[in-house]
Amino acid sequence: MTPAEFETVVEARGVHKHFGHNHVLKGVDLAVRKGEVVVIIGPSGGGKSTFLRTINYLDRPDSGEIRINGAAMGAPQPGSGRATLSDAGLSRQRRQVGMVFQQFNLFSHMTALENVMCGPVQVLRTARAEALADAKRLLARVGLANKEGSYPAQLSGGQQQRVAIARALAMHPAVMLFDEPTSALDPEMVAEVLQVMLDLSVQGMTMVVVTHEIQFARKAADRILFMEEGRIIEEGRPQDMVDSPRHERTKRFLHLVQDEK
């Protein structure tokens, strides 16, 4: 393996996914380098979220391959005699991939602090004191040091999403996936979440972001992908994609999204 290949954190090759008769992903390829921020845009139902969910195998691809730091997701251990990887094995692979959901999905029976500590303590078996210190540091990093004892129901949407980001970061993942992280938020809370994400990108986190926030994409992305009907139609540098897209469908989509604002 050459050093250049090793730097690739996420690699997707020929990913297909069906839901019943619905062919949602029609051969998606993507390589994300270490520290790179890739933003995926495109119309709803185009397969963006599904593709993101195949990266950590929340949705298992029907065919194709996902590699995280070179290791194929869901591949059985050599010599195990199994056709697929065990639940425990897949769970171990997922630790490397952080995910932030549109609906936050904070554990509703745990405080903000407990949410952030949960992964390290339960999954990584980190010592409690260490996990606690790390969780406090992460909550401070997303600007919520004063909300440690609050339950999700006591937090605003924007605050919940920032806790969710801290929860994913607590696992020290190799890559963070964001699935429309601001779509469920009231407009006045979008900025605070985007700011946290922008900070992360500046600090060198490898990120794959599905979003409709074109201005965020323009600012934070190294690369923008336009996805429609289960395929990546066009990709390029943010300025080129936003200001002078080549593809007719990309143009139309950007028009629509930006007119809304």
Partner: peptide
């Protein structure tokens, strides 16, 4: 228990039994 709770637990690398015990059953 909302499906998102399962997914969030799985996404941070919890096995199925642990997801049930730590996240789903308490709720």
């Amino acid at each position: 228990v909302p499906k998102g709770q399962f997914e969030a637990a799985r996404a941070i690398g919890m096995t199925w039994p642990k997801t049930m015990r730590v996240i789903v059953m308490p709720q």
